[in-house]
Design a protein around this nucleic acid. Structure first.
Lengths: 186, 186
DNA sequence: ATTACTATTAGGACCTAGTCATAATACTGG
DNA sequence: CCAGTATTATGACTAGGTCCTAATAGTAAT
């Protein structure tokens, strides 16, 4: 038996969510109704036409690309930066950062946030990490917001030492000391 | 003076590369030629129409979304694994791993390779990194192949210590000691 | 200047995947 | 059976094209 309107609209929503590239014609075929019915459904559900849908998927990607290209950037979002002194970044833990088994953030993301913040805080074309000593104080879970604070604690001709402490709310979750190499002398 | 055909086509290519969402009409306006000229140019350069361009940007994004999901895996490719003893993985350094300025691999990728190998080598549902002490011995460059070898050096009830040394050819590039926490006792 | 060739522009028919509006038909519950 | 909802049909119009033909403009060589 054919689906009732409500059921069909629900499935329609899911189908488009799963495959935004599908045309009304294909949907009509799939649900065994006329194209016009599909269009009425889309109207009622406020779903735009296939080209608009494709465009927004593309647009998302494009924003990502622009974000990723200066991959020279920091992992997370820098919210404060004083060159050669201190810096703060935030990283929202999302699905791609966690183990699916237990929803705990994978350590290297916290490391990446801290390490890239060290690179950013140094006023130099080329700053590389030489040594690091780090502690994971407690595990970070999905949807938590990690605030990393980097502080330059020592600098000599070629090397800079940076301390990073990352918190979720008031709780320390990660701490590390990074010894960075600078290409140019101070 | 107006651009010659060749110059125009070159600029056209760049413009579309930069903004794939632009229509022929807008391009015609931008280059002060007719729409037909733009279309001839696209034909000659083999550039598809705006909708196709948008679709391929969207398609890329869609593939990426699917790719990002199996994040539970090890960073790099495991080529040898003896549970609770040792493991080896290789990571080919590609464009997305390096700073675009100097083509040197970003530290957190080497860390991620080593750290995830530590997680993999431990025969446990849930292994988390507690502490790590690491050294970047020399910088790794684009297209180099990093071989990471992990070796369990100590185990007690709750903790396992793993040593990782990563080489490019015969040269040590990274080394670290990871203290891992296991959820289940041995 | 005339010819030869390339480059540009114009026009019309057709395409896809729609929107929007109107109207006819089908189904379903009271 | 009738009312109200759901579905389908139809036609006019849109954007952003393709494909083909044809006219016009610009340039370089004889």
């Amino acid at each position: 038996m054919k689906l009732k309107k409500k059921d069909r609209q629900e499935k329609l929503n899911q189908a488009i969510e799963k495959t935004p590239f599908i045309t009304d014609e294909e949907l009509a075929e799939q649900f065994q109704v006329s194209i016009q019915t599909i269009r009425l459904d889309r109207m009622e559900l406020g779903i735009p036409e296939v080209r608009k849908r494709i465009e927004s998927v593309a647009q998302e990607n494009w924003d990502e690309t622009l974000k990723a290209l200066p991959a020279d950037e920091v992992i997370g979002e820098v919210i404060d930066l004083e060159l050669d002194q201190s810096a703060i970044s935030i990283l929202d833990i999302q699905a791609e950062h966690v183990f699916s088994r237990n929803h705990i953030a994978r350590g290297h993301h916290l490391f990446a946030q801290a390490n890239s913040l060290c690179v950013a805080v140094i006023d130099d074309e080329l700053a590389l990490t030489v040594n690091a000593s780090i502690q994971f104080k407690r595990s970070v879970r999905l949807n938590e917001r990690v605030v990393a604070k980097a502080k330059v604690i020592h600098t000599d001709k070629k090397r800079t030492t940076v301390e990073v402490n990352s918190h979720v709310e008031k709780e320390l979750v990660f701490s590390g000391t990074f010894e960075m190499y600078r290409s140019t002398d101070r």
